[in-house]
Design a protein around this nucleic acid. Sequence first.
DNA 1: GATCCGTGGTA
DNA 2: TTACCAAGGAT
Length: 304
Amino acid sequence: MPTAPGATARPAAGRPARAHLADLLVPWFDAAARDLPWRAPDVDPWAVLVSEVMLQQTPVARVLPAYAAWLDRWPTPGALAADSPGEAVRLWGNLGYPRRALRLHASAVAVVERHAGSLPTTVQELLALPGVGDYTARAVAAFAYGQRVPVVDTNVRRVVARAVEGQAGAPVTRRDLALVESLLPEEPARAARASIALMELGALICTARAPRCPDCPVQRECAWLAAGRPAPSTPARRSQTWTGTDRQARGRLLQVLRDDAGPVEPERLDRAWEEPVQRQRALAGLVHDGLLVRGADGRYALPG
DNA sequence: GATCCGTGGTA
DNA sequence: TTACCAAGGAT
């Protein structure tokens, strides 16, 4: 249950407020956290990795069914490694960024070849897996193995930028890792709990667009709130228009392959994206990325 | 560091 | 409707 307002001692005079954050965050998390399958106490480390890769730039609601289907079909790295990368791309469905499916498959192969089929446990070894970067490696180390490592994603960056630094936006630097580590309790399991609580706070309360400060467990410690919730000093860059981009073309083309059981005729792809120069460029890119292959007969297929 | 890489929900 | 946004990674 959350700590009642007023029942928690304020930090001693002169003590940095940030040292106090975890004490407020963890009880809040215990009461308010979403019940997500990859947070189950007995969840397999491989399942945690699958969830983390799927959650890269993808909302929880869309990951939930894909996560269940994926682990039902491939409960272990060995099971995935024994299947084709094309099947991984197919089951990836509409999650977006399908190269993640390819890299997850490649990670499964690497785990079988280099780690006897068991996901490695150190950040360094996890970082060596394809598609696993700074965030994902530390997320697995903390959430699957209970290690005391800073986990810095977009939620944590935003929470720390506001609550600790008092800014609406903060630069992405290596300093973030050291700063977040300074927020973590010493005991590893509690540190991991604090890490997931930081992320959850960013996802549920300290959101990008309309933060719910009145519901925030650290509102009394928040530098951004104390400063009157100042707007970002640097305006956000304009995002690329979507219609007509190579990304849209690639998505349309790959969708044809996903939704069909076998190789498809080039004419099918002509209809999926009519502009020939861009279509060719997109197809070449997909082939280059290993997301599809072109047979000797000119038909395209997912990689076998 | 800037750019590319999908998809769909939301205000 | 447009623009932003959602647990990043690779180049």
